[in-house]
Design a protein around this nucleic acid. Structure first.
Lengths: 187, 187
DNA sequence: TTATAATAGTGATGTTTGTCACGCTCTAAT
DNA sequence: ATTAGAGCGTGACAAACATCACTATTATAA
């Protein structure tokens, strides 16, 4: 499992074995069961999670009993309620396992410590954040320019593997349409 | 004008006068007229812009002659087509002045140089990127949970000053509704 | 094994939003 | 001073999508 994190980091930066050991000492390793919660809406967010194996959903529960999927997180993704994590607020969202999931997690304290003591890690985090920002903007663009059918096709094209692991009701929630509408989409 | 950038940086990090001079030497200062383009869709993106004064729009032009506003950028905002900027691709979007605008701009080369030579600046950039990511996720959440009326009210609440500087047709484009629908919204 | 819940499809109907058309006002440029 | 265009509102109609109700199938757990 350590190897997966190491390889992941080494795609962007190069770490010696000692450096990686140092990095690893800032993370904790966890196994979660399907339906387990990693973050509870309304509570503190202590960690940011790297998904080694499995699948998570980041969900906003509105006041009307509806769930809205802000994001999925599968292998090699980093996820948290970042607003709550960085600003030390209460979580606006829930992070929950769709499948049994293995993670490495890092506290905000260790995130800052690691960033300060190992500039390479800071530039890694910067790159991840930039990618997340860009991905979010693309999703916004998808809402601005495309209808439900088009958004679904874009999703199919972008994450063909994800689609097979997630019930369509959750995909509908991610796309911002009702499950009935998704079920009726032509192509 | 230098003072505005300095104050802006000093909100997040603390720079000595020499450090700030060093930082400043990586930027170029520019004045743009209303309707001027800073980034042309389809071309290379050389810079990222800090808005000292004025107002920009980041626009995606789809194939059907429609404009979609991905983002506005007013005083103290950082803007670019980040995907094109960081990945050295052609711009997917246009960056254009809504008002006469004064900017400091930084090339990608200088962005990396500054990040590497002055860790404080890297942590500044990291913070900006995290904020952008969080803001984008909130906008996605707004699309997922709210109808046109609610999204407009959220915008009014979040950026009351922006609304007064931007024609309603552009606000409509930002909200993802037609200008006619925006014009008809109850509250 | 059996009961229960999760998943998925579909008809009927209503609401929201988009599109096209038109008119009115105000500004900016000639 | 006159004109062209930007900005804004609104009516009529069409398209997209949500909601409710019902059914069927497949997992899952007692």
């Amino acid at each position: 499992m350590k190897e997966k994190l190491k390889e992941h980091l080494n795609k962007k930066i190069s770490l010696t074995d000692e450096e990686f050991s140092f990095v690893l000492s800032h993370f904790s390793f966890e196994k979660h069961k399907k339906n387990d919660f990693l973050i509870y809406q309304g509570e503190n967010v202590s960690h940011c999670y790297y998904v080694v194996h499995g699948l998570l959903k980041l969900v906003y529960n509105d006041g009307n009993g509806k769930q809205h999927i802000v994001s999925f997180a599968m292998e090699d993704w980093w996820e948290s309620d970042f607003s709550a994590y960085f600003m030390k607020n209460k979580a606006k969202m829930t992070l929950q396992c769709i499948e049994d999931t293995i993670t490495f997690s890092i506290s905000l304290k260790n995130y800052h410590k690691l960033s300060a003591e190992l500039p390479k890690m800071q530039s890694f985090f910067l790159e991840k954040s930039n990618s997340g920002y860009i991905a979010s903007q693309n999703r916004i663009l998808s809402f601005l320019t495309s209808n439900a059918t088009e958004r679904y096709n874009q999703l199919l094209k972008q994450y063909p593997l994800l689609i097979q692991r997630v019930p369509k009701s959750l995909l509908a929630s991610y796309l911002g349409v009702s499950r009935e509408t998704l079920s009726r989409l032509s192509s």
